[in-house]
Design a protein around this nucleic acid. Sequence first.
DNA 1: CGAATGCTTGACGGTACTCAAAGATTGTGG
DNA 2: CCACAATCTTTGAGTACCGTCAAGCATTCG
Lengths: 256, 256
Amino acid sequence: MIFEDLPAPVSPPACAHPCDACALRRNPAFLPMSADEVRVIESFRVGTRVFEAGQSVIEEFRLSRLLFTLYSGWAFRFKTLADGRRQILSFLLPGDFIGLQDEFADGHTHGVEAMTTVTLCAFERDRLWDLFSAHPKLGYDITWLAAREEKMVDDNLVTTGRRNAGERVAMLLMHLYRRAERLGLVQDGWVAFPLNQQHIADALGLSLVHTNKTLRRLQQLNLHRLEGGWLRIIEPHALEKLGDYFERPMRPTPLI
Amino acid sequence: MIFEDLPAPVSPPACAHPCDACALRRNPAFLPMSADEVRVIESFRVGTRVFEAGQSVIEEFRLSRLLFTLYSGWAFRFKTLADGRRQILSFLLPGDFIGLQDEFADGHTHGVEAMTTVTLCAFERDRLWDLFSAHPKLGYDITWLAAREEKMVDDNLVTTGRRNAGERVAMLLMHLYRRAERLGLVQDGWVAFPLNQQHIADALGLSLVHTNKTLRRLQQLNLHRLEGGWLRIIEPHALEKLGDYFERPMRPTPLI
DNA sequence: CGAATGCTTGACGGTACTCAAAGATTGTGG
DNA sequence: CCACAATCTTTGAGTACCGTCAAGCATTCG
């Protein structure tokens, strides 16, 4: 962690990347925004944060004072039971808005952990209402992102509830591949894939051992390749059919 | 279904229950609202709908033009896989706002089905932005409800992913009991409980048979009683501990 | 009274979990 | 640069939880 969580820096966001020069905003995965909107967003931003792989962006049982937009890297949301069993709720990729659920939760929320080096833009939770009030359009956009996030959790719930191991793995691989593809993270058919098998197991509600065997089986069927932290989808249609999961081409989303 | 989904009635909401006389609003589970806010909400409402148990409020693969607030009764959100396997995503009780996720989903969403006779207030999806724009506070409230809904799905995902059968049942019983209690639906320790065992199985990612055996086992341990559509929690602490699930007393929520 | 729906129970099998240990890979410090 | 530790992956053996199949029972409804 480069900056301590508290206190938040009071100084203006003298970060290297002003919002209007934000590289993410040039990504076609995101909706263009008016200069006015960008200015409002920037005025609410309190700085950037960087976390290394494995660090907690939001600790599970402590209410974070900050909301984030993930600028670069991969992270995940999770919950753990008292005896240590962990469930990954969803994965976070650039453009995802983080921490909204806590806003209205009386504690007892979820943790967020970085899987790669991660850069985030931070906002003060306390000023969320000001943002809605000052610029309802941005409030609408945040609702949009929240609804999109819930849709992903819905899909994961179907997966853990009703898919078998092979279907689960197929679904997850295609889901993450499509999301990465949309962001332009796929090169020559390969994506940098920072999940280890424990992550996959915890996301799918499987044991580590069974995850390994399932992954291996699909790979031997030549549906995908996963090696050295890189993923290649060889038979997208077969995986989509196996997982009964067909990610629609997504419209550009807002970027807060 | 008393009214056809389309076309929405253009006439003013000449329904029997104007919003400012809404009985739900007098329930302490909900935040009081200014007369102004209530007026705005009413101006966006296009009428009420009633569905009988078993009917579809929102069909799974068709985009609904309406958003709803559940006024009375129980319903559930679900998704089905191609071969018919069904997963219940969450249960809907009075005060819940329905259909928001579809707003931003390009099709491929979830269905909503009534479990009892259900009364809903309907809003036109197309005017959601107008609502945010006219009254940012209401937009903020909708985001609140969306975040609360996602938190419930998060919990269900932990359940299907990482809890065993006994823990799943314990968690679900306590979850629904607490929600009903909050709404004042518990009388003398009993709640009208409209789920059958297939609903429970589909919510928990279990088979019908195993759900039955688990339910029976917990009942023989004298943790709860479930009979004739009524639920009584006998050992709340034991169930909470078994399920490692402790529902916090919830703050009053907005009611749209 | 018969059909439909939902609940209950037993038998059996398989998917997925646990335990255990051996490779493989990466990182670190002497 | 190599040795050692730490982490991650792979594999096998044995088990158990949970699913499937099948059938009987209870309740409701027409």
